[in-house]
Structures are given as C-alpha cells and as structure tokens.
Design a protein around this nucleic acid. Structure first.
Lengths: 232, 232
DNA sequence: CGGCATCCGGGAAGATACTG
DNA sequence: CAGTATCTTCCCGGATGCCG
C-alpha cells in the first residue's frame, strides 16, 4: 500500500529547497527529473498516458505516473476523462500549466548556444513546434504570410505566420500553402541544420508539397543563437 | 582517489536525456539538484566556496563541489585565483553563464503564482536583487529616478532606477537617496508583503535612512503576478 | 489498452566527520 | 577556508505482474 495524499491540499513532490526565491520554488514544483519534459509534451494540448510514453522515450511508466501525480498535485495539470465513446482519459495542462512555456523557451534559447548540444538526437513533434515559437524572428518574416502543414508520425500540425507573428497548433491541416511530411528531425535539419529541401527529398526523409518558394522562405525564419566561443 | 576528467573536453554531468530539444539539453546541463541555485548566487559576481555555502543553507560541501565541477565542465563558470595579497579563489560565471538569468526569471515569475509559494522562507541577498530585476514594472516607475542602497548581512548592494530601467549590483553604496539596512526577508516584506516600513522599523527588522518618500515609492515598483485561482 | 503496485540495482543527494 | 572521505538515505530506472 502506498501513502495517499488524503487531503486535496496541493503539496510539494519530493525534497524541497528551504528558500523563498521564486526560482527555488519553481524547482521545488517541477525540478524533478522529467517533470518539465512532461509539461513540454502537453504544451500543444492534452495527451494520453501512452502518448506521453511514446513522446518521451526513456521515461519509465513508473516515473511517468509519479510525475503526473506530482504535476497534478501542484495544480499544473488535470486528469480528464474524455466523453464516450472515446472514453480515454487524458492529461491536460491547466491555464497556469500552459504559462510555463516561457521557462522552456528560456532553457532552450540558452542551451542551444552550448557546444555540447547535439541536434541529431531524437526530437518530438511537439518540441519542433515549440522550437518554432521560440526561435521565430519577426524581422525575417516581414511581409510574409503563410500556412504550413506538418504530417509528423500520424499527427497533423499547423503553423500560421502573419503580421510578424507565429502560431503553432496540433490540428487538422487546412488550406495549407505547403505541407511537410516526414519526421521531426528531418524538418529540423532543414530549418536549423541548413540542409537543402531537395537533399532531404532525395533521401526520402521529407516530402514537400505545395509552394516551394514558401517552403524555402519558411525555413529561413528561425535563426539559432550563435554557439559560444572562448569563454562564453 | 577520484576519477578525473583528464581531457579538457566539456562533458555532461550525470544522466542525460536523449533528446535534441533545447530545453532537454538545458536540463542535461543544469538540471541537477542545486545547479541553478548555485548559478543564481553567482549572478551578481564571483563568490568563494564558503560564500556559496552560506548563501545556500542546505547544500552540503560535497554536492557543492560536484556542482561547481559540473558547471565548470560545461563552460558556465570558471574557477579563478584572485591576485595576491587577497589570494582567495573564487567561482565566476562566464558570459554565457550570466546569460542564464532569463531562465531564473521565467522560473520565478511562474512559481510566484503558485499558492504553495511561501514567502516567509529564508531569502538570500542575491535572490532579492534578482527579484527586483525580474518584477520591476517600468510603468510604475514612470518619471522616477532613484539610487537605493542596501546593507544586507555585511554586503552592500546598489539599485539604480532611471528612465524606466533598473540596475542592481553588489557594490559599495554611493550617493544613495535611501539606504535600507536589515535582512533580505525584511526588505521582501516591505516590497512584496505589503508590510509598512514604519512597522518594520518599529520591530527593529529594518532601518531606513534617507528620503522616506523615495523609499515608499520604491517599494511599490515590484508588483507580484496574481496567485492562481480555481484551475489556474 | 491504461494504468498502478512491487521489487531490485545503481547512483545521486544528504549528513557528518575529517584533512591540508 | 576549501574542500575530501565515508556512510546512509532516497530517487531513478528497469522489469514484472496485477487489475480495470
């Protein structure tokens, strides 16, 4: 038998820092291993337990259960039961949970400058979409409007760019100017790795349908910050 | 004897996520317990080993050693030997290390909305100064210029406000309009807790020297985000 | 399928004591 | 002051098995 939190009072998971600093408290809340990555995967909408496992190769069912309990306990997510007949239960961030996105953006922006960063590692579809939000450069998108669809491993996503703003969502592809079909790393290769679309298509790694000009413009909109040189 | 990293190649501390996402890589780099708090304490300039221990009650010497090694290994800080006669060695963030401040700000902003946040916990002087940078509201400081000094446990700090911008540094107090003398929690009580300066002075928790009007204006410049209500 | 319980091994963190 | 050495405790990760 396991200890239940019989009260509904939210409570801290695990060890905690005895520190009034907001950053320290954030680490009390979501500083445990995997917690932030679980939230990342939920950032584009609710997912089921097995979706999370699939998106986070390396997390064990055991730990995922604990993290979901912890994040639920602090009020960052809720477990919802979908209405029948699709009576699956899903985990969904609360409005406050969604507000954690700037944390991930700050982490991502900082870490991509590290020489240790290996962009060839696996990448989830959600990570790719969030990276677009993070790295989007409004100046480079001046006067550019586009609707880009992505088919990534059975899920569809839409990115809309207009008036120097970007939106990214997991949703059906509709009225897209371009549709990319392939894997997140392949798309990342084009956007961040400087790989030509033609090369990816020749490899069969990526399929690009629609306006080629728009596709080629799109992949220039997300400049990476420079790697650190000597001493930062 | 302990294993040395005989190469100078930077390397990841501990376990790592197999994930190309920037946020995941950041957690590989600084996701271990205490790492971010160590960086936080160095954010206002170099400190010695024992300064860090004092600022982080609860960290043990061996863990601090490991974190300093880890942060050094990834290029976030360097160990420097001060020139004689003050031949102490200090730990100093690299320029890239200093760039991690937005991470702490995002964490802090998000976590202060949690109902679990306990502002009565201990607070370091550096945390207080960084919180000023984080929570400063330019609109509330419109037309306000001031130089505020802080004497907090033997160290002096200056906060300068002008043209809707704020600076905070650990440095000698000079030409201050107001000087606060006391502990970080006492100052936080006035700025974030709505405690009247007169009450803190009556308790002997805080001493306020200089222009009272400026002091009273100053403590209104740092609005906290609202706590989450039902469901975020 | 969608979890939760349990056991186990390894490793990171915490506490304390000790050394140059 | 600036760390090591040692010991214990707890968390993480993997495997297995149960239950709705």
């Amino acid at each position: 038998m396991k200890l239940e939190n019989t009260t509904n009072t939210p409570s801290l998971p695990g060890r905690s820092y005895d520190d009034a600093c907001g950053a320290a408290h954030a680490l009390n809340l979501i500083g445990e291993r995997w917690a932030i990555l679980v939230m990342r995967e939920l950032m584009l909408g609710p997912l089921r337990f097995s979706d999370l496992r699939a998106a986070l190769p390396g997390i064990s069912a055991n730990v995922l259960t604990q993290r979901l309990e912890g994040l639920g306990g602090i009020g960052a997510l809720v477990k919802r039961k979908l209405p029948p007949p699709a009576a699956a239960q899903v985990y969904e961030l609360t409005p406050w949970g969604y507000e954690a996105e700037p944390i991930m953006q700050a982490l991502g922006r900082w870490a991509t400058r590290s020489p240790l960063h290996d962009p060839t590692l696996p990448l989830s579809a959600v990570s790719l979409m969030l990276s677009f939000r993070t790295m989007f450069d409004p100046a480079r998108a001046d006067g550019f409007e586009a609707r880009i669809g992505f088919r990534l491993g059975g899920e569809d996503y839409m990115v809309r760019i207009a008036k120097g703003r970007i939106e990214a969502a997991r949703e059906a592809i509709e009225n897209a100017d371009v549709v990319f079909t392939g894997t997140p790393p392949a798309v990342a290769g084009a956007v961040y790795g400087g790989v030509k679309l033609a090369a990816l298509e020749a490899d069969g790694a990526l399929e690009v349908d629609g306006y080629r000009t728009i596709a080629n413009r799109f992949i220039t909109l997300f400049p990476l910050p420079p790697k650190i040189s000597a001493e930062g």
